[in-house]
């Protein structure tokens, strides 16, 4: 079971925070196929958010094929996300790149800014290809 943390000041829509946190839990293996997500009531009791928001997040996860609502039983995880990213060649390459960035004199914040900007640029490109 996961527990959602809602940040009211983040500017990210509440339902999206639930979607993102569920996906993160799937990536990290904190949620596995067959696990039940907390009911809307349980989430609402803990976080004091609108119940329709929780249902909307779950519908979105269902639409993406990650969970399945079973009537009267709850919402269950149907598949995981991503592989174990821990020891893929990609991770080693990224570590390599980070070492080089450090040597080039980049600070933590510079690296984060650079990484985020490339990530966003690529995301936009992907969207363009998709359309």
């Amino acid at each position: 079971m996961v527990e959602f943390r809602i940040d009211r000041r983040s500017g990210v829509a509440t339902y999206l925070q639930i979607v993102q946190q569920t996906k993160q839990a799937l990536r990290l293996g904190l949620l596995e196929p067959g696990d039940r997500l907390p009911t809307a009531r349980e989430v609402v009791e803990a976080t004091a958010i609108n119940p329709n928001t929780v249902l909307k997040a779950y519908r979105e996860l269902e639409r993406e094929g990650l969970v399945e609502a079973r009537r009267g039983l709850g919402t269950f995880v149907t598949r995981t996300l991503g592989g174990p990213a821990a020891d893929t060649p990609l991770r080693a390459e990224l570590a390599d790149w980070l070492d080089r960035a450090r040597k080039a004199g980049l600070e933590q914040d510079d690296i984060t800014a650079l990484f985020t900007s490339v990530l966003e640029e690529r995301a936009d490109n992907h969207k363009g290809e998709g359309a």
């Binding site: 009211r8 000041r9 509440t14 809307a40 009531r41 609402v44 004091a48 958010i49 119940p51």
Partner: peptide, 25 residues
């Protein structure tokens, strides 16, 4: 919110604290 989840209660709530309304309304 639990009451709304359990019974579909309609709630109309006036408030000046706009940031709080966003998550609940």
């Amino acid at each position: 919110m639990t009451e709304a989840a359990d019974h579909g209660t309609t709630i109309v709530i006036s408030s000046h604290i706009l940031s709080e309304l966003e998550a609940t309304c």
